[in-house]
Amino acid sequence: ETIMEVNLLKGPKGLGFSIAGGIGNQHIPGDNSIYITKIIEGGAAQKDGRLQIGDRLLAVNNTNLQDVRHEEAVASLKNTSDMVYLKVAKP
């Protein structure tokens, strides 16, 4: 597993990826991690090219996303300014 830091500039459609996982909404049984499950065509993440489906999202800005509820992860992604710092684990 490789840890990678990505600074992503939000586009008109936001960050351009979808997530799944978290406490109460496990993407993988027994694993509370938050995973990237979709990269949106023409979105910021696709244009940047570094994020991939299956990457594990560890942090957004200063918010640690390990062992959080799905709703908390979504809220932390929404409550960001235009430049967003992401910390991901690549499988």
Rank of each mutant, 00 (worst) to 15 (best):
residue 65 L to S: 01
residue 58 L to I: 14
residue 35 Y to F: 10
residue 59 A to I: 14
residue 45 A to R: 00
residue 62 N to Y: 07
residue 42 G to I: 02
residue 74 V to E: 08
residue 13 K to F: 04
residue 40 I to L: 14
residue 78 K to P: 02
residue 83 M to P: 11
residue 41 E to S: 12
residue 72 E to I: 09
residue 2 T to S: 11
residue 1 E to F: 15
residue 65 L to I: 12
residue 21 G to S: 03
residue 59 A to N: 12
residue 5 E to C: 05
residue 88 V to K: 01
residue 80 T to V: 12
residue 53 I to P: 10
residue 3 I to W: 05
residue 11 G to R: 05
residue 79 N to S: 15
residue 63 T to K: 10
residue 32 N to H: 10
residue 59 A to Q: 13
residue 27 H to A: 04
residue 49 G to D: 11
residue 5 E to Y: 08
residue 39 I to F: 08
residue 61 N to Q: 07
residue 5 E to I: 15
residue 91 P to A: 06
residue 51 L to W: 00
residue 61 N to T: 03
residue 29 P to F: 14
residue 81 S to Y: 07
residue 32 N to T: 13
residue 5 E to L: 11
residue 75 A to M: 10
residue 60 V to Y: 03
residue 29 P to M: 15
residue 24 G to N: 14
residue 12 P to T: 08
residue 28 I to G: 07
residue 90 K to Q: 15
residue 40 I to S: 14
residue 62 N to T: 12
residue 63 T to S: 14
residue 53 I to D: 11
residue 34 I to A: 03
residue 11 G to W: 06
residue 43 G to Q: 08
residue 52 Q to N: 13
residue 54 G to T: 03
residue 33 S to W: 06
residue 10 K to L: 07
residue 75 A to H: 10
residue 10 K to C: 06
residue 35 Y to W: 06
residue 19 I to A: 05
residue 17 F to P: 00
residue 76 S to T: 11
residue 28 I to D: 10
residue 29 P to I: 12
residue 40 I to E: 14
residue 51 L to V: 12
residue 24 G to C: 09
residue 9 L to E: 11
residue 63 T to V: 15
residue 62 N to S: 14
residue 87 K to P: 01
residue 3 I to H: 08
residue 35 Y to C: 04
residue 90 K to R: 05
residue 47 K to H: 10
residue 61 N to M: 13
residue 82 D to W: 04
residue 48 D to S: 09
residue 22 G to R: 02
residue 33 S to L: 04
residue 36 I to C: 04
residue 88 V to N: 01
residue 28 I to N: 10
residue 60 V to W: 02
residue 80 T to G: 10
residue 25 N to I: 07
residue 61 N to Y: 03
residue 89 A to N: 08
residue 13 K to R: 09
residue 4 M to G: 05
residue 36 I to P: 00
residue 9 L to M: 07
residue 50 R to N: 09
residue 71 E to M: 08
residue 84 V to E: 01
residue 8 L to Y: 09
residue 24 G to Y: 09
residue 4 M to W: 05
residue 89 A to L: 10
residue 71 E to V: 14
residue 53 I to R: 07
residue 72 E to W: 09
residue 52 Q to S: 14
residue 72 E to M: 07
residue 53 I to F: 12
residue 59 A to Y: 12
residue 1 E to W: 02
residue 85 Y to I: 08
residue 14 G to H: 04
residue 90 K to I: 08
residue 53 I to N: 10
residue 14 G to L: 03
residue 71 E to H: 03
residue 28 I to F: 14
residue 33 S to K: 04
residue 26 Q to M: 09
residue 66 Q to N: 05
residue 20 A to P: 00
residue 13 K to V: 10
residue 23 I to M: 08
residue 32 N to C: 11
residue 39 I to T: 04
residue 75 A to R: 15
residue 38 K to V: 09
residue 82 D to P: 14
residue 12 P to R: 08
residue 75 A to P: 01
residue 84 V to P: 02
residue 35 Y to D: 00
residue 3 I to S: 05
residue 52 Q to K: 14
residue 74 V to Y: 10
residue 87 K to C: 05
residue 23 I to V: 14
residue 42 G to D: 12
residue 68 V to G: 11
residue 70 H to P: 09
residue 37 T to E: 06
residue 37 T to P: 01
residue 69 R to H: 07
residue 19 I to N: 00
residue 38 K to Q: 12
residue 58 L to A: 06
residue 73 A to K: 00
residue 72 E to K: 11
residue 32 N to Q: 11
residue 57 L to E: 00
residue 24 G to E: 11
residue 43 G to L: 07
residue 11 G to M: 11
residue 28 I to E: 10
residue 57 L to V: 11
residue 24 G to F: 11
residue 32 N to E: 08
residue 17 F to Y: 01
residue 36 I to S: 00
residue 20 A to G: 13
residue 23 I to K: 15
residue 34 I to E: 01
residue 56 R to L: 07
residue 30 G to I: 03
residue 75 A to L: 13
residue 64 N to G: 12
residue 63 T to Q: 09
residue 68 V to P: 04
residue 34 I to V: 11
residue 46 Q to P: 01
residue 20 A to S: 11
residue 50 R to I: 06
residue 79 N to T: 14
residue 78 K to W: 07
residue 17 F to L: 06
residue 71 E to R: 08
residue 42 G to W: 07
residue 28 I to A: 07
residue 80 T to N: 15
residue 32 N to I: 03
residue 76 S to D: 11
residue 21 G to A: 03
residue 46 Q to H: 07
residue 89 A to C: 14
residue 5 E to R: 12
residue 8 L to H: 01
residue 52 Q to D: 10
residue 8 L to T: 02
residue 3 I to N: 12
residue 87 K to N: 09
residue 2 T to V: 10
